Amino acid sequence: MRLADSSLDQGATIRPTLLLALCLSCLPALGQADDAILKRVDDHYNHLASLQAHYSEHYTGMGMDRNESGTLLLKKPGRMRWSYATPVGKVFILDGKNGWFYTPGDPQAQRVSAKQLDDLRSPLRFLLGHTQLKKELDTISVHPGPGGYQIAGIPKGMSQRVKLLTLDVDTKGLIVSMSLEEIDGATTTFTFSDMHENLPVKDGDFIFTPPSGVTVVDGLPPI
Results as ranks from 00 to 15, higher is better:
His44Pro: 01
His44Gln: 11
Tyr45Pro: 12
Asn46Tyr: 05
His47Tyr: 10
Gln52Ala: 07
His54Thr: 15
Ser56Arg: 15
Glu57Leu: 06
His58Pro: 02
Tyr59Trp: 10
Tyr59Gly: 10
Thr60Met: 08
Thr60Cys: 08
Gly63Arg: 03
Asn67Val: 15
Lys75Ile: 11
Gly78Asn: 09
Arg79Ile: 09
Arg81Asn: 03
Trp82Gln: 00
Tyr84Phe: 12
Tyr84Thr: 14
Thr86Arg: 14
Thr86Val: 15
Gly89Lys: 12
Val91Ser: 01
Phe92Leu: 15
Ile93Arg: 00
Leu94Gly: 06
Gly96His: 09
Lys97Val: 14
Lys97Glu: 05
Asn98Glu: 04
Gly99Glu: 03
Phe101Ser: 02
Thr103Met: 03
Pro104Lys: 10
Gly105Leu: 13
Gln108Gly: 10
Gln108Arg: 14
Gln110Glu: 06
Gln116Thr: 05
Gln116Glu: 08
Asp118Tyr: 04
Ser122Tyr: 00
Ser122Ala: 12
Ser122Cys: 02
Ser122Pro: 01
Leu124Ala: 04
Leu128Gly: 01
Gly129Thr: 07
Asp138Pro: 00
Val142Ala: 10
His143Asp: 13
His143Tyr: 13
Gly145Thr: 12
Gly147Glu: 05
Tyr149Thr: 03
Tyr149Glu: 02
Gln150Gly: 03
Gln150Tyr: 11
Ile151Cys: 05
Ile151Pro: 03
Gly153Asn: 02
Pro155Trp: 05
Gln160Lys: 09
Val162Arg: 01
Val162Asn: 00
Thr166Cys: 07
Asp168Gln: 12
Thr171Met: 00
Thr171Ser: 05
Gly173Met: 09
Gly173Arg: 12
Gly173Lys: 06
Leu174Val: 11
Ile175Lys: 07
Val176Ala: 03
Met178Ala: 02
Glu181His: 01
Gly185Gln: 00
Ala186His: 11
